[in-house]
């Protein structure tokens, strides 16, 4: 694929998470080729591109959710603080404790209350000796939903609106105190008001954590992200990164013609 020279601007910032030559297969089908991206500390990276080009797949390689699909194949390296998370000695569940994930559709645990949902990760991973009240409040505050739910923590999570459920899912992830949060089109099922609230939350969170967000919304990418990677899969070839750089460069001065066409809405 083409030139990555915009990426040079970023090389001075400390790398937190980095992918090196990531290749992905489903069965015999090669769907991602040589994806090398750097996610610096406390920066928001947007992954954009037409649907089916492998953004979600790439995101799932970052916390080893990819390998849960039976036909999944993988090559390359993912480095978290310099350590390859695919090394044989690494326990994938530990990787997922450090790298949280928020899904496209809000998916709180339906049998649990709001409070239990926030604490669910701690329970599920078998942690003990934490201050539940403190963690619930902090996590809900960080996900900017505390004021809306503080008087009804015992209510079922399903009694919340879609946007509130998605912020609860963010809180649930935050309760684990991850270093990185991955978000796969977190607003695509939400109304504009809820979308705006989540974007504000992302901005606040980026002061303390590294965030990778897949979005099909060009305005959203420009509003929330510091850097942007444009993915593309052409004519049955595996998908890859066409352009990667500072968000304003990718949107206003793209190097590749295809990036220019995509960000200006000419295809996809």
């Amino acid at each position: 694929m083409s030139d990555l020279s915009n990426a040079a601007n970023l090389s001075t910032i400390e790398a937190h998470l980095r992918s090196e030559d990531v290749n992905v297969w489903f069965g015999e089908r090669h769907v991602l080729r040589d994806v090398s991206l750097t996610f610096p500390v406390n920066q928001v990276t947007a992954l954009i591109g037409p649907s089916g080009c492998g953004k979600s797949t790439f995101l799932r390689t970052l916390n080893r959710m990819h390998e849960l699909i039976p036909s999944a194949g993988f090559a390359g390296r993912i480095l978290l603080d310099g350590e390859d998370i695919y090394e044989p000695g690494v326990d994938p569940t530990n990787v997922r404790l450090k790298i949280g994930m928020v899904f496209q559709k809000p998916n709180p645990f339906p049998t649990m209350s709001i409070k239990e949902n926030v604490l669910s990760g701690l329970k599920l991973s078998g942690r003990r000796g934490y201050d539940a009240t403190e963690i619930v409040e902090t996590s809900l505050r960080r996900a900017s939903i505390w004021n809306e739910v503080k008087d009804r923590l015992g209510d079922p999570a399903t009694s919340l609106s879609g946007g509130q459920q998605q912020r609860l899912c963010i809180a649930r992830s935050l309760a684990m105190n991850p270093e990185v949060i991955l978000m796969d089109e977190p607003c695509s099922a939400l109304d504009p008001g809820s979308t705006r609230r989540i974007e504000e939350t992302i901005e606040e969170l980026s002061e303390t954590m590294t965030i990778v967000i897949v979005t099909h919304n060009m305005q959203q990418a420009q509003r929330v992200s510091h850097q942007t990677a444009f993915f593309l899969a052409e004519d049955g070839n595996p998908g890859g990164v066409v352009e990667f750089g500072k968000t304003e460069d990718v949107f206003n001065n793209p190097i590749d013609l295809r990036t220019n066409d995509y960000v200006n809405g000419h295809f996809g």
């Binding site: 916390n63 959710m65 849960l68 569940t93 530990n94 997922r96 404790l97 949280g100 994930m101 899904f103 559709k105 998916n107 645990f109 339906p110 669910s120 990760g121 599920l124 991973s125 899912c169 649930r172 992830s173 684990m176």
Partner: peptide, 12 residues
């Protein structure tokens, strides 16, 4: 997605 959420939270 609910089962994936548990996995993504580090559940066995």
């Amino acid at each position: 997605d609910v089962i994936n959420a548990a996995t993504a939270l580090g559940a066995s």
